[in-house]
Simulated assay, not measured.
Amino acid sequence: MSAELSEQTHPTPHVSRWWLLRDVTLVLALFAVGGALCGVLWEWWWTAPSGSVADGTWFPDLEGVRGVFSGTALYVVVGAVGGLVLGAACGWLFDRVELVTLVAVAVGATLAGWLMLWVGTALAPPDPQLAAASAPDGTRLPGTLAVSGDSPFAAFPLGATAGLAAVFIGLAPNRRSRG
């Protein structure tokens, strides 16, 4: 009787290892593609800061100073929203074993944040300091896309876990009744 009661209060269907492996692979692939697309969006939305060369060093002008900080701010916004959407989608689509999905989303979101940075900076103009070393004074050069500090890299994973939690906790009664 107690085993029967336990099954009624905590229904956990038997899930094969192949289904779990499939789900984890799909979550990681979804985050990899999402991170790359977020990198494209990040670079597209960003405006390169303007600046000029003096004594072999690039300096942002007054308007360009804002652009230096906007790269980090946009990384956080795009990463958090992208993570939120992807985390919620994974929570809805891959709910066989929640703990496995949580770990896959955490790893996938970290991967997505790294891919977003890699793709976004690869599409951006090169580092102006390299060109400034050999450029004459007064040469105008665009700045490059970068992220300042380490804390912005938490945006994608935090957004993803928030989206996952919203589905797992907020929609839990509805999700259990679907199966």
Rank of each mutant, 00 (worst) to 15 (best):
W46R: 09
A135W: 12
Y75W: 14
A112V: 03
G91W: 05
G67L: 07
V100R: 00
G91F: 04
D61N: 11
A80Q: 02
L111Y: 09
S52T: 13
F94A: 05
E43F: 09
L102P: 01
V119I: 15
G35P: 14
G87Q: 02
D137K: 00
V119R: 09
P49V: 10
D95I: 00
C38L: 09
L84I: 11
P126L: 12
D137G: 05
L84P: 08
V53T: 04
E63K: 03
P60H: 04
T47S: 15
T57P: 01
S52M: 09
P136F: 06
T57D: 03
A135K: 08
R96L: 06
E98Q: 03
D127P: 06
L41K: 10
Y75E: 12
G120P: 10
V105Y: 06
E63N: 05
D55M: 05
F59W: 01
A122N: 09
F94S: 04
G64Q: 06
A54W: 02
L115D: 04
T47Y: 13
A104I: 08
W58S: 02
V107D: 04
V40M: 07
G83F: 14
L86F: 05
V105T: 09
V76P: 12
W42N: 04
T101R: 00
A109F: 03
T139W: 02
V100C: 00
L84M: 08
D55Y: 05
A131F: 11
G64S: 07
G91I: 09
Q129T: 15
G87K: 02
L93M: 12
A104E: 07
L84C: 07
V53E: 01
S52A: 13
G108A: 08
L117V: 01
A104W: 07
G83D: 15
L84V: 11
P136Q: 03
D95C: 05
P136V: 10
R66V: 02
S52P: 00
S50R: 14
W114P: 00
W45P: 03
Q129Y: 13
T139P: 02
G143W: 03
L99T: 06
F94K: 01
L130R: 15
V107R: 00
L102K: 03
P49K: 07
G56R: 01
E43Y: 10
V100Q: 00
L141P: 03
V76K: 10
W46D: 01
P142K: 11
G67M: 08
L41H: 13
T139L: 03
W44C: 02
V68G: 00
V97K: 10
E43W: 11
G35L: 13
C38T: 08
G83Q: 14
V85W: 12
L145E: 05
L111V: 14
V100T: 04
V97E: 01
L130N: 07
A131P: 07
G51F: 10
P49T: 07
T72R: 10
L37I: 15
G64K: 08
V119C: 11
L145T: 12
D127V: 11
V40D: 07
A135L: 12
A73C: 04
A106G: 15
V77D: 15
V76F: 15
E43R: 15
P136G: 06
L123N: 09
E63F: 00
T101I: 05
A132T: 12
A104D: 08
A36I: 10
C90V: 13
